[in-house]
């Protein structure tokens, strides 16, 4: 890790801002040959080129507010949602903003940090950076960290499809990785989210995150995908990340382009949901809510 004088995985809080500022500059330089996510586009975002996420050099955000939607141990959280994503999940509940990196308003780390600090004073327990997918806006995310108080508990909410180069810059910056493991096989990932080679990338990132800090893994149950997606995810978690907190979410919402896929046109049937939770219990997963 870059803050090498510390033996702890998380940077000493007093140093986090300083380290984040340096890494933000490094991350911005990486935009000249952007390989922040596993799509590995290699475009020069500083020169106006765009890759699959269509993000430019400057981040935008579409939401910044206190929320109580997430895991009970993390809320109330001041959630900052950056526009744009490197995946194209047809069922994305924020598809209009997550598929559009130009959505929302221009992002200022200084102004957002001021809002975040006001939220902390109002009672927010954590500050959460999400998207879309925040990895594609790594410079802005690190610039925000550089502006935040040393004691703030920071959450990185991610699709876990980032590249190794991105996660190295994230090491020690966020207290908790709240990471999705959406698909249990590459075929579903390609068909529903146009993301090839998904499973291996996510597994590598989850293993890294668990080894470098606190990890909570989320899986959103999709109707008709208990056996092809949840079952392999659950077995992999049980075998490779025993004890990790798992949030199995049953509130699938047929949003955005979900209706393009017959099985995603509705919610998760109660019987499927029950079967999914039974499997989690059989495997001894550490379910959280």
């Amino acid at each position: 890790m870059i803050c090498a004088e510390s033996v702890a995985t998380i940077c000493a809080p007093a140093k986090r801002a300083e380290v984040a500022a340096g890494r933000a500059r490094m991350a911005r330089e990486l935009l000249a040959d952007c390989r922040l996510c596993a799509h590995d586009c290699g475009v020069n975002r500083l020169a106006g080129e765009t890759g699959l996420c269509h993000a430019g050099a400057e981040a935008r955000f579409f939401s910044a507010q206190i929320e109580v939607s997430d895991e009970l141990e993390l809320i109330p959280s001041f959630a900052v949602a950056l526009s744009g994503c490197d995946m194209r999940c047809d069922f994305c509940i924020t598809g209009a903003s997550s598929w559009n990196a130009r959505a929302g308003a221009g992002f200022s780390a200084v102004e957002m940090a001021a809002q975040a600090q006001a939220a902390l004073r109002a009672g927010a327990k954590t500050i959460m950076v999400l998207g879309g997918e925040p990895t594609i806006h790594l410079p802005a995310a690190l610039e925000l960290v550089a502006q935040l108080p040393a004691t703030a508990k920071l959450i990185w909410k991610t699709n876990a499809h980032g590249a190794a180069s991105a996660r190295e810059l994230l090491e020690g910056m966020f207290d908790v990785w709240l990471a999705d493991f959406k698909f249990g096989n590459d075929e579903c990932a390609q068909r529903l989210a146009r993301t090839p080679d998904y499973v291996g990338v996510v597994q590598e990132n989850l293993l890294w995150a668990e080894a470098h800090g606190e990890l909570i893994v989320r899986h959103l149950l999709m109707p008709g995908h208990v056996d092809c997606c949840w079952r392999p995810v659950a077995h992999w978690l049980a075998e490779n990340l025993p004890g990790v907190k798992v949030n199995l979410r049953s509130g699938f919402w047929p949003a955005w382009h979900a209706a393009r896929h017959r099985e995603l046109a509705g919610t998760v049937p109660a019987a499927e949901s029950a079967r999914a939770f039974e499997l989690a219990q059989e495997l001894g997963l550490n379910l959280s809510s």
């Binding site: 910044a64 507010q65 206190i66 109580v68 939607s69 997430d70 009970l72 809320i75 109330p76 001041f78 069922f91 994305c92 509940i93 809002q115 006001a118 939220a119 004073r121 109002a122 009672g123 927010a124 327990k125 959103l220 979410r249 049953s250 509130g251 699938f252 919402w253 949003a255 809510s289």
Partner: peptide, 22 residues
């Protein structure tokens, strides 16, 4: 009960600024 716990998280509601879903 889950929503009650979320609603019970204290916050200053004058702050200006799932079953949970996707």
């Amino acid at each position: 009960a889950a929503m009650s716990r979320r609603a019970g998280r204290t916050i200053n509601l004058n702050f200006q600024t799932d079953e949970l879903s996707n």
